[in-house]
Simulated assay, not measured.
Amino acid sequence: MRLKADLGAYHTNCQQLLQVEVTSYLFGCALLKFRVLKQQLVLRSISNMMSFEFFLFWEGDMANSRNVFISHIHEDDHRLAPLKDLLSKAGMDVRDGSIHSDKPNNAKNPDYIMSEKLTPRIRWASVLVVLISPDTKDSEWVTREIECAERMGKRIVGVWDYGEAECDIPTALDRYADAIVGWQGERIKDAIEGQINYREQSDGSQTSPRLVPRYSC
């Protein structure tokens, strides 16, 4: 009888231990799931609060790299790669935060696009580069991007697209540009780095420098 009682007690203890183990396992899984969900919620909350898109770029020599926002009309999307190649040959790798066909914007509301999509990208960049072609002057978006960069105290550089040095430029660029240069890699690089502070006319002549304080980031 005592052996039967001991076996009964042992069986009961095993059941209790098994229940404890199962409960601990389920609790652990629930806790892990809670932590994962909590982390996702926190990250999502941070993203929503900051309304900021994080740009992660690992390629290139950081010493010769610059964060830029290339303001342009969408019809000139195909001209971004040649501009970056031109700068690369001059020894500068640029990380572009602008929206283009490779990084499209699906939002529809203009105010939302400006405040939640474009403004954080312009803030991330140290320089706003405006690619100038004949239709650039008529773009409301290019004008808004230039004015946004001006309010932030960003350096603003205009670059004549290849063969387009005779076209008109946006009024905002004429008013706020720190430098406007032609389609030459070394000159564009120098303008981005602040070594050129004048504007080139279509005939190659220079205007007076614009003495306005700028802040890099």
Rank of each mutant, 00 (worst) to 15 (best):
K108G: 12
K108P: 09
N109A: 14
N109V: 15
P110L: 11
P110D: 05
I113C: 10
I113V: 15
S115P: 01
S115I: 13
L118Y: 01
R121V: 12
A125L: 06
S126K: 10
L128V: 08
L128I: 13
V129A: 06
V130H: 00
L131K: 07
L131G: 06
S133H: 05
P134T: 02
D135G: 10
T136F: 01
K137F: 12
K137H: 13
D138F: 01
D138I: 05
D138W: 03
W141G: 06
V142F: 02
V142C: 08
T143V: 11
E147Y: 07
E147M: 10
E147F: 07
C148K: 08
C148V: 08
C148H: 09
A149F: 11
E150N: 13
R151H: 12
M152E: 08
M152V: 12
M152H: 09
G153A: 08
R155W: 02
G158S: 02
V159A: 00
W160Y: 15
G163S: 08
E164P: 03
A165C: 14
A165V: 10
A165Y: 12
A165K: 15
A165D: 14
C167P: 05
C167K: 02
D168E: 15
P170W: 03
P170F: 00
T171N: 13
T171Y: 11
L173Y: 04
L173D: 00
L173T: 03
L173C: 00
D174K: 08
D174H: 10
R175A: 09
A177Y: 07
A177H: 04
D178G: 00
D178T: 01
A179T: 05
A179K: 00
A179I: 06
I180G: 03
I180H: 03
V181E: 03
V181H: 02
G182V: 04
W183T: 03
Q184I: 15
Q184H: 15
E186K: 09
R187G: 10
R187P: 09
I188F: 01
K189H: 15
D190N: 07
D190R: 09
A191F: 07
G194K: 07
Y198H: 15
R199T: 06
E200I: 08
E200R: 09
E200P: 00
S202K: 09
S202L: 05
S202G: 13
D203W: 10
D203A: 03
D203T: 04
D203E: 04
D203G: 06
G204T: 07
S205F: 01
S205T: 12
Q206P: 09
Q206F: 10
T207D: 07
S208H: 12
